[in-house]
């Protein structure tokens, strides 16, 4: 079990919180909450140790394209990098769209 934390400078705000993903093999849960600070804080919890550099690469890339001020919590269950990126984009989409989540 590993707990990784990452921090980014941010400029854009997001309107509301979002929860996407599932607890299940090869998947992950992403909880995204808006922050007042111009910062993004990411916490990753994973049972698969030793992938810190890959997480950093995925998150660096995400925040390069979407510098949102948010607190993001990720619970990973062995998702591929492709799955992680898609879930992050989904969380971002839900946080900006009233229709996507009840």
């Amino acid at each position: 079990m590993e707990r990784l934390t990452f921090e980014y400078a941010a400029t854009k705000s997001v309107p509301k919180r979002a929860y996407v993903g599932v607890v299940g093999s090869g998947d992950l849960e992403v909880l995204l909450e808006p922050l007042e600070d111009k910062k993004a804080y990411v916490t990753v919890r994973t049972r698969f140790d030793g992938f810190e550099q890959i997480w950093k690469d995925i998150l660096d890339r995400f925040f390069e394209n979407n510098d949102i001020a948010a607190k993001i919590e990720i619970n990973d269950f062995g998702a591929t990098p492709g799955m992680v990126s898609m879930r992050l984009l989904q969380a971002l989409e839900v946080s900006q769209d009233d229709k996507t989540q009840r």
Binding site: G21, G82, M83, M86, R87, Q90, E93
Partner: peptide, 23 residues
Amino acid sequence: IALAEYARGSGKVMLRTLNGPML
């Protein structure tokens, strides 16, 4: 797709395909 996600009925779901995941 994950049953747990689809059963929420809240819009898009992650489809795992031979060529990677897509919403």
